[in-house]
């Protein structure tokens, strides 16, 4: 079966805003290399995790996937169709099939629009159904995302809801067009711990009902481990490691993945973690380090690391890592 979503050598470079004089006299433009040549594919029905720290490029990647921003270069195919070169009509159909759930439900909802209208809006735009049908559809969706009784919620404003309820509205709004592909950008990061699992469980049941394919963007490895089938670990605009959930969590290969995993606090006082915390902070994405981008912080860096950009090395048929330590073919030379 061909992949549902295929991403090939995707890059996104944002120009850096400079002061007027600086721009006049320096002539050179700087770019934030938010996403810098990543490739992956997603199968239909899969939950694919993009995991990384701030500045890793995970959110930019997610936004490009649903065409909220244009990539600088690279290709994306969605169900066999190139996403980057669509005409207006194709783009409209694409938007019905691909939706996004944002991190902060308070910011994602218009404070002056009722919950019912917020969910209905997409139906209006796409001209789906009559007024009565739209209302019915919205009430059904409110019920489906757990806002019951739906009549009570229909005319409420976002500020009258709790954080968890707002996130349910945002999910309902994304689901109203019955999409096949949903990018969820940190959907539970702003939600209280006791509610988080409720929201994730809702997302799982929607996935089963609608046969969804998810991209789940998160900085939280533990949540990714709970929710995703396959995971890509991103660092400074590149994929460091990609594999099935079990492969990445049980036998992480990239020193960055190992560090990231060891840094997570475990809710068990008897667990005494062996920390392998890299020194320093993530370098600037405007001038990323040469070679492997992790090399200045890597405990296992050797002479090749600052000089050569590691390609992806296959560990198993599903597990790949971008690290010279595993690159045996060239290491022997």
């Amino acid at each position: 079966m061909p992949p549902f979503v295929e991403v090939n050598n995707l890059t996104k470079h944002f120009p850096v805003q400079k002061g007027f004089l600086e721009a006049m006299f320096s002539g050179k433009r700087d770019f934030v290399r938010a996403v810098d040549g990543i490739s992956f594919s997603i199968k239909k029905g899969e939950t694919f995790g993009l995991v990384g720290e701030s500045g890793s490029g995970k959110t930019t990647t997610g936004r490009i996937l649903v065409r909220l921003i244009e990539p600088t270069s690279g290709e994306i195919e969605f169900d066999g169709q190139p996403v980057t070169r669509m005409n207006a009509e194709e783009a409209q159909t694409f938007r019905r099939r691909a939706q996004i759930v944002f991190q902060d439900p308070a910011a994602a909802l218009n404070p002056r629009m009722t919950v019912g209208n917020a969910i209905k809006h997409a139906l209006d735009i796409h001209g789906i159904g009559s007024d009565i049908e739209r209302r019915e559809e919205v009430l059904r969706m409110l019920k489906r995302v757990g806002l019951t009784p739906p009549d009570n919620f229909h005319n409420k404003y976002p500020h009258q809801l709790s954080g968890g309820q707002r996130q349910r509205v945002v999910i309902g709004r994304a689901m109203i067009l019955k999409p096949q592909f949903v990018v969820a950008d940190e959907p539970v990061a702003m939600v209280d711990v006791s509610i988080r699992a409720q929201i994730l469980d809702l997302m799982v049941s929607l996935k089963q009902e609608f046969g969804l394919t998810y991209v789940f963007i998160t900085h939280d490895l533990a949540t990714a481990n709970y929710f995703c089938d396959r995971i890509a670990i991103m660092y400074l605009g590149k994929i460091a490691e990609i594999g099935l959930r079990g492969e990445v969590f049980k036998s992480p290969k990239h020193p960055y993945t190992v560090a990231l995993m060891s840094a997570i606090p475990v809710p068990d006082p008897k667990h005494k973690p062996e920390r392998l915390i890299p020194r320093g902070a993530i370098p600037s994405p405007i001038t990323p380090p040469s070679g492997c981008r992790f090399h200045p912080r890597c405990p296992k860096a050797f002479n090749r690391c600052p000089n050569e950009d590691p390609g992806m090395t296959r560990i198993t048929s599903t597990h790949e890592v971008a690290c010279h330590l595993f690159d045996e073919t060239k290491a022997g030379q």
């Binding site: 509610i195 988080r196 481990n225 997570i264 809710p267």
Partner: peptide, 24 residues
């Protein structure tokens, strides 16, 4: 008990992420 069970646990995913119904 609910709070401890709702927390994500990277070592024991099966022991984690059990929601507390309702909201505060």
């Amino acid at each position: 008990k609910g709070l401890l069970e709702s927390a994500p646990n990277i070592l024991h995913p099966e022991r984690s992420m059990h929601p507390i119904p309702g909201s505060p």
